[in-house]
């Protein structure tokens, strides 16, 4: 029951975020979206992911988008120009077409979930490959209790190194592109 309510909230957040013209409010709503998503992750027992979602999605992303907003306007351009522009009317057909594409894609994705194994089923193919080894041998092989950390840092150490390099590159790009010269 609570899962359905949470998912409903997510959908509402999504709709409101698209419908809003105030970009600051949209940013805050997306933060709320991430927080609800974090609760959903917790409900799925993915606590590490929930932690990341709460700190990155709800926390830092919101702040960084607001920081970017401080350099631009708070309202969408068409509102500042006074009402919906002619462009909006012109692309009505195109927008309808886009809606169709989104609905069809969403439908196909939903259809795909029918084939997915039941949640938490220990006999899933996904749960039979390397998962038993991680669960049984993580402490023995890495000396770490939380095997999410063990997978990230040890079994998939190269991936995490790549991930850190991506963040490093992002920081470098921001410095190169946006740093104001004195």
């Amino acid at each position: 029951m609570i899962d359905i309510i949470l998912l409903l909230f997510l959908v509402i957040c999504g709709f409101v975020a698209v419908a809003m013209n105030d970009l600051l409010s949209t940013t805050i709503i997306l933060g709320a979206y991430s927080l609800i998503m974090a609760i959903v992750w917790t409900r799925l027992n993915a606590v590490d992911v929930a932690f990341t979602e709460a700190s990155v999605g709800a926390g830092i992303t919101t702040v960084l988008i607001i920081a970017a907003l401080s350099r631009t306007q708070r309202m969408e351009a068409q509102i500042l120009a006074g009402g919906r522009s002619k462009k909006y009317e012109k692309y009505k057909v195109k927008r309808l077409l886009l809606l169709m594409v989104i609905l069809v894609t969403g439908g196909i994705l939903m259809y795909g979930t029918i084939d997915m194994p039941a949640f938490g089923n220990p006999n899933d193919p996904a749960n039979l490959h390397v998962v038993p080894r991680y669960i049984k041998k993580t402490y023995e092989e890495t000396g770490v209790v939380n095997f999410v950390t063990a997978i990230l840092a040890n079994y998939r150490g190269y991936d995490t190194l790549g991930e850190t390099s991506v963040i490093f590159t992002a920081g470098l790009s921001v410095i190169l592109l946006l740093r104001r010269k004195k």
Binding site: L64, S70, G143, N154, T160, I167, A170, G171, V174, I175
Partner: peptide, 28 residues
């Protein structure tokens, strides 16, 4: 292995914190 994981976690934390600070100061 435990200490090695500690080491890289500290490395990740330093980079992530510094990049977040930099992105904020450069964009705001």
């Amino acid at each position: 292995s435990h200490l090695g994981i500690y080491g890289i976690e500290i490395g990740v934390a330093i980079t992530v914190a510094a990049v977040m600070i930099t992105i904020f100061f450069e964009t705001a």
